[in-house]
Amino acid sequence: MDDKKNIILFGYGSFGQQLYKNLVEAGHSVRVVSEIDENIEFALKSKTEITKINIKRDDDIKSLEIDQDKHIIYCAMTKTANNVFLVLSLRTMFPRAKIISISNSFENTRKLKYVGVNNVIDLYETTARRIANTRTKPAVTRALDEIIYHQNDLKMAEIKLSEVSFVNGKKISAVPFGKYGIILVAIIDQELGNELIFTDNRIDHKLDAGDILVIVGKTKDIENFQEILQADDLLI
């Protein structure tokens, strides 16, 4: 989980700036690309490295030397039309690249998906749901806030089970997650494909190497838990 990614961020508007900040805080290396002079000026002022390109020209994009197996590409331009166009050009050039884009409506999400984006963050959908939740589920909002913004050290993380781990071959119910101050929320069980499954106890999955666990816990407990997982056997 702590392998830091190389990220190319297109767009440095209000959302781009925020995203840049969050990505850098998470320890990733980010390269910012923009085509609006104003944003470039702003970036230079805050000493952010930025490249100016014209997204309509393929040569400009090629000059960025994107490695589709290494980079994650974020399309965060203010205008959704630009994002759609950018995803289209990127996808034709880099069929295997991981591309994520922002969207401002359900409509545009559909268009972005059509041109081949891997994931979409809908700026308004997430916000709207949150606002509605402050009205209907205030406690959930508070809890989610703590998890998303890492308040009180609480966070959500994922752990990929390595070849050597004491939980390999065990059923979920046989692993005392709670004892380590951790709650298992979902897993990706490699035997069942790449689908994310919530572990609300309907099926007791068997854990294997390669499975991904999504857990919630305090940062310290998560780190602790990871170390314990490395041990090939443990006296419980």
Binding site: L19, Y74, I102, N119, I121, L123, E125, R130, L144, I212
Partner: peptide
């Protein structure tokens, strides 16, 4: 509520932990 804030945070989660991102997204978007 700062729309850029939530989405920005989500975007950062995606880079390192795509599965956690998906869980969070499905929790938020319901």
């Amino acid at each position: 509520v700062v729309p850029e804030d939530i989405a920005g945070m989500m975007g950062a989660v995606y880079a390192g932990e795509p599965a956690a991102f998906e869980v969070l997204l499905s929790m938020i978007e319901d």
